[in-house]
């Protein structure tokens, strides 16, 4: 019961947030919408016993990453307006078509009760609890290689960002 209510409530909030990301004219509004979506998703993670991941989601994703986004928006995105007219031919129509196709697929799943399309086989063992210990245990034993690889990736990303900022590109004067 609780789960159902939570699902409907935060599900709608997530969709509202997503729609505002796409539809808002002001980029700050888009960022706010995204934060809303992320927080809703964190709720879902908690509901599904993924505690650690939920915490990380809020702290890192909604906290650090979105802050970064807001910085950049402030730097370059706020007061610039966007041209509403679409220049690329076929972009809008084709996009609508694709959108409808995907939507149609989703609707088909819901209406047709064909959950087997989406879920797969159901194992009847204990549902895992995503506590810190459990995550840590998996991370440092089976998944240690990807772990190290991602740490390397972070270093590379940090270095890359510094490099990009340190050597500003010389742009020629624009008319």
């Amino acid at each position: 019961m609780t789960e159902l209510v939570l699902f409907y409530l935060f599900g709608s909030l997530a969709i509202v947030g997503a729609l505002s990301v796409v539809l808002a004219k002001n980029p700050v509004r888009s960022a706010m919408g995204l934060i809303l979506t992320m927080l809703s998703l964190a709720v879902f993670y908690v509901v599904q016993s993924a505690y650690f991941v939920a915490a990380v989601q809020v702290i890192v994703y909604a906290g650090a990453v979105m802050t970064l986004f807001l910085f950049v928006i402030m730097l370059i995105g706020v007061d610039r307006s966007e041209d509403l007219k679409e220049h690329i031919p076929w972009q809008r129509p084709l996009m609508f078509v694709l959108g409808f196709v995907v939507l149609g697929g989703v609707v088909a799943v819901i209406v047709g009760n064909e959950w087997s399309w989406v879920t797969g086989i159901s194992n009847l063992a204990e549902a895992p609890v995503g506590s810190a210990e459990a995550i840590g245990e998996g991370l440092f034993t089976n998944w240690v290689l990807p772990f190290e690889a991602t740490s390397l990736l972070l270093i590379v990303a940090a270095v890359g960002a510094i490099a990009l900022a340190y050597f500003p590109a010389k742009r020629k004067e624009r008319e």
């Binding site: 194992n123 995503g130 990736l153 890359g160």
Partner: peptide, 23 residues
């Protein structure tokens, strides 16, 4: 659904990579 912790570990990694990518 599949009663496997690997799902959450995958999310972990996706998160990390997404962060790096954002940077």
């Amino acid at each position: 659904e599949l009663r496997d912790l690997t799902g959450q570990l995958a999310v972990f990694f996706v998160l990390v990579v997404a962060a790096a990518e954002v940077v």
